[in-house]
Amino acid sequence: MTYKLILNGKTLKGETTTEAVDAATAEKIFKQYANDNGVDGEWTYDDATKTFTVTE
């Protein structure tokens, strides 16, 4: 399945997608991606749209 991440960081904003077997796997990938890019904030997930959002 395709999952989407919306980044609302102070210095980085944008979107990315990943292919993952489930939401938990996608979350791990996205949290590593956000960490690698210096984004740390409040996480939400919308199962209907398979979208994670992180807001600093």
Rank of each mutant, 00 (worst) to 15 (best):
Tyr33His: 05
Lys10Thr: 09
Thr53Asp: 03
Ala23His: 11
Thr11Asp: 11
Tyr33Trp: 13
Thr2Lys: 11
Thr25Ile: 08
Lys10Glu: 08
Asp47Val: 11
Asp46Lys: 04
Lys4Ser: 07
Val54Glu: 01
Thr11Gly: 10
Gly9Gln: 04
Thr17Gln: 11
Thr53Gly: 03
Leu7Trp: 15
Val39Trp: 13
Glu56Gln: 11
Glu56Tyr: 15
Asp36Ile: 11
Asp46Glu: 08
Tyr33Val: 05
Lys4Tyr: 13
Thr17Asn: 07
Ala24Val: 10
Gly41Asp: 02
Gly38Asn: 11
Leu12Glu: 06
Ala20Gln: 05
Asp47Trp: 08
Gly41Met: 03
Gly38Thr: 04
Thr17Tyr: 15
Glu19Leu: 14
Asn37Trp: 15
Gly9Ala: 09
Gly9Lys: 04
Glu56Pro: 05
Phe30Thr: 00
Lys28Ala: 13
Gly14Ala: 14
Gly41Trp: 06
Thr11Pro: 04
Ala24Asp: 10
Asn8Gly: 04
Lys50Met: 11
Glu56Leu: 06
Thr49Ile: 08
Asn8Arg: 12
Thr49Gln: 06
Glu56His: 07
Ala48Arg: 07
Ala24Pro: 09
Ala48Asp: 12
Leu7Thr: 05
Asp36Pro: 02
Glu19Asn: 13
Thr17Phe: 14
Thr44Ala: 13
Gly14Tyr: 15
Ala26Asn: 00
Met1Asn: 14
Glu42Phe: 13
Lys28Gly: 08
Thr53Val: 08
Thr55Phe: 07
Gly38Asp: 08
Thr25Asp: 11
Asn37Gly: 05
Asp36Ser: 10
Ile29Gly: 03
Asn8Pro: 03
Leu7Ala: 04
Glu27Val: 06
Asp40Gly: 09
Gly14Gln: 14
Asn35Trp: 15
Leu7Lys: 01
Leu7Gly: 02
Val39Asp: 02
Ala23Ser: 08
Asn8Gln: 09
Glu42Met: 12
Thr11Asn: 12
Ile29Thr: 08
Tyr45Ile: 02
Gly41Pro: 01
Trp43Phe: 04
Thr25Lys: 06
Glu42Arg: 09
Thr18Tyr: 08
Ala20Trp: 02
Ala23Gly: 05
Ala20Met: 03
Glu27Ser: 09
Asp47Phe: 09
Ile6Tyr: 09
Thr16Gln: 10
Thr17Lys: 08
Lys50Leu: 10
Tyr45Asp: 00
Lys28Val: 10
Glu15Lys: 07
Glu27Ile: 09
Lys10Arg: 11
Glu27Tyr: 15
Glu27Leu: 15
Tyr3Thr: 00
Thr53Gln: 06
Thr44Asn: 08
Thr25Gln: 12
Tyr3Pro: 00
Ala34Asp: 00
Asp22Phe: 04
Phe52Arg: 00
Glu27Phe: 15
Thr51Met: 05
Asn8Tyr: 12
Asp22Tyr: 04
Thr44Met: 10
Asp36Arg: 11
Thr53Arg: 08
Trp43Gln: 01
Thr49Glu: 06
Asp22Lys: 03
Tyr3Asn: 00
Lys28Phe: 10
Thr11Gln: 10
Lys50Gln: 11
Gly14Phe: 13
Glu27Gly: 07
Thr44Lys: 09
Lys50Trp: 07
Ile6Gly: 02
Ala24Leu: 13
Tyr3Glu: 00
Leu5Arg: 00
Thr55Arg: 06
Phe52Lys: 00
Lys50Asn: 08
Gly41Lys: 02
Asn8Ser: 10
Lys10Pro: 09
Ile29Asp: 04
Thr53Tyr: 13
Asp47Tyr: 10
Leu7Asn: 02
Tyr45Arg: 02
Lys10Ser: 10
Thr55Pro: 01
Gln32Lys: 14
Val54Trp: 04
Asp22Met: 04
Asn37Ile: 14
Leu5Thr: 01
Ala24Ile: 09
Asp40Lys: 12
Thr49Arg: 07
Thr49Val: 06
Gly14Val: 15
Val54Met: 05
Ile6Thr: 05
Ala26Val: 03
Ala34Ile: 06
Thr17Trp: 15
